[in-house]
Nucleic acid binder design. Structure first.
Lengths: 105, 105
DNA sequence: AGTTATTACGTTGCACGTAAAAATG
DNA sequence: CATTTTTACGTGCAACGTAATAACT
């Protein structure tokens, strides 16, 4: 299964240009990146990067995924924000509050 | 953090109309659904369902999320398929194979 | 030599299932 | 009373960090 965390990591790698730079950006170890990118490549059925020693290059599949990933992560973030906004002023769920008071008869 | 699995479960719940029906559809236990929906509601900052005893209703936030979720899951599936297709006939990575043979000199 | 990716391994958190309880019609 | 959701609890897996190894300039 394809995981969301992997897409975030992938986006960071593309943006940063290397696994270690992405790890610094995401505040995690680069073995974590390496693992997840391997898993992502397995899920995608082939390599996404060309390991060119110093720097990374994207394969054709990698370029396509990078483009789509950017869009999808942005959509997800926007959705989250909008849903949270609606949930905050929920018109469907009625909240009732009260306080103790003396009966006035 | 919002998880992909949660969105799939949410979509199934919306489609099926109840937690237990969704569990049957996804071949998992309904406590699993219940847990993840609780987590999703926490991530969204408010309730997505109105627990009306027998059936579930969606809140305003739930309706919005349902709409967006359908789109995003479809996009993800399409992306996966397209990337896999490209990875399958990878033009960037060169695969070389050989077999043992007698030298013809 | 210095930077970067991979491999190996131990740990912890989380998703899930089973079982039991609560709620609703 | 039957169906459904929630709570409680135990377990197994997978993501991660640390450490060590390998590869490249």
């Amino acid at each position: 299964m394809i995981e969301l965390r992997q897409l975030e990591m992938f986006a960071a790698v593309v943006r940063a240009g290397s696994f270690s730079a992405a790890a610094r950006e995401l505040r995690c170890s680069q073995p974590a990146i390496s693992q997840q990118m391997r898993a992502l490549e397995r899920a995608m059925g082939g390599p996404l990067f060309v390991r060119a020693g110093r720097w990374l290059e994207l394969t054709a599949a990698g370029r396509l995924l990078a483009e789509r990933t950017t869009v999808m992560l942005a959509e997800l973030a926007a959705t989250r924000q909008r849903v949270r906004a609606v949930a905050a002023e929920d018109f469907d769920t009625v909240r009732v509050c009260g306080f103790p008071a003396r009966t006035r008869t």
